[in-house]
Design a protein around this nucleic acid. Sequence first.
DNA 1: GGGGATTTGTGCTTTTCTTCACAAATCTCT
DNA 2: AGAGATTTGTGAAGAAAAGCACAAATCCCC
Lengths: 226, 226
Amino acid sequence: MPLRQVPPVKRGKIPAATVARLPIYYRALTQLFERGEARVSSEELAEITGVTSAKLRKDLSYLGTYGTRGVGYEVEYLRFQIAREMGLNNEWPVVIVGLGNLGRALARYGGFGSRGFQIVGLFDHDQKLVGTKVKTGKSEIEILPANDLAKATKQLKAKLGVIAVPAEVAQKVCDDLVNAGVTSILNFAPIHLVTPKGVDVRRVDLASELQILAFHEQKKIEEKTA
Amino acid sequence: MPLRQVPPVKRGKIPAATVARLPIYYRALTQLFERGEARVSSEELAEITGVTSAKLRKDLSYLGTYGTRGVGYEVEYLRFQIAREMGLNNEWPVVIVGLGNLGRALARYGGFGSRGFQIVGLFDHDQKLVGTKVKTGKSEIEILPANDLAKATKQLKAKLGVIAVPAEVAQKVCDDLVNAGVTSILNFAPIHLVTPKGVDVRRVDLASELQILAFHEQKKIEEKTA
DNA sequence: GGGGATTTGTGCTTTTCTTCACAAATCTCT
DNA sequence: AGAGATTTGTGAAGAAAAGCACAAATCCCC
């Protein structure tokens, strides 16, 4: 009986569009795994995640060849490989700046504290909030003053930061985070952040999302009238 | 002196990538307008919004020719045109389903209630929440039981729905919304929703965003070690 | 009213992403 | 052990998006 070959890890840049989908596959695989499924075909996994099977297979092919022709993919194995590729086997410390409605929701949000991430610092400018505690996934964390941001973040060795402050102060907070060694930022402020090279920023803009939907609604109405 | 020509509205499909950027331009223009700026060049607007000027001009060109060569764009005029194109001059009624941490933050979030949108209905399955009120932008709204979702939403004539419930019940909620006449859905549950044709779904996946950043961090580390 | 300085709008090129379609690999059954 | 049924992995084609570069339009100033 032939031994399983050495993991055929592929080296080479993974397209951005693919990277953006890996978390979706990962989550679906986790679900399948918890349900006790041992194997899954590209067709099934594609159906669950809402992509085409060809796209899914191509996406996975950038990571390596983890499937078996005529059979499909081993759920647990594939899940592990994606996790490894995405660095989810590490535990990433995350700081959140701004604990208004949204920031607080994020801090409490289970999905954030889940697998791979741990919220280690909360900062706010508002003196009324400083000193109060917020329940994150596992523990309670005290909100620290925004002034301590740079020092504390450096100490906590956080490389990931979440910005949930008003647009007016977002760039300032961003600069502070970068100075503190943060190199990946999730920005909820509706503004373009300027960062030095090597710092990744992803923007999540809730109002924009609604507006995009409004655009589609608008088009539906125009079609009817036309 | 020549009269300004009839608005040269262009007809034809606007690329999805462009649509996704229109809200960003719109916001920047609003800012400029409030700051009292009368004109802006593609170069300036591009800088503010973090795109290249060529891309910006091409994006705008899908809407019509609203600029003046050698001069730039009139801030107020262009802003209005984008708003019109996106349907932001209407007031869209929105319902939110699920008022946990996130749903509540969204309900309170100013940006949602802002220009173009009005939150008209809140629903939750939890009996402890039903009957309590949540301050949205302008008014206070009572949380209604999820069972009333279909009927109430139909009555409220909401075409836009926000899903902020756990993944397990998201598809059920989605079906209810669609039955109630909702044709655009903003989905915060980490799951692919199946909808009939003609219903638009946009997914905002907070955990995915962090995971994508983790991927980039991972790569930075690998580069260093390599 | 003409020349020089701007800045838009867009045809063309390049890059990135998606889809197609099929050979290669594996399994099952007899 | 071979034939038939699956299902992956991937070249190649097609579609969408981004970037380039320049003609066309406008302004300003003399």
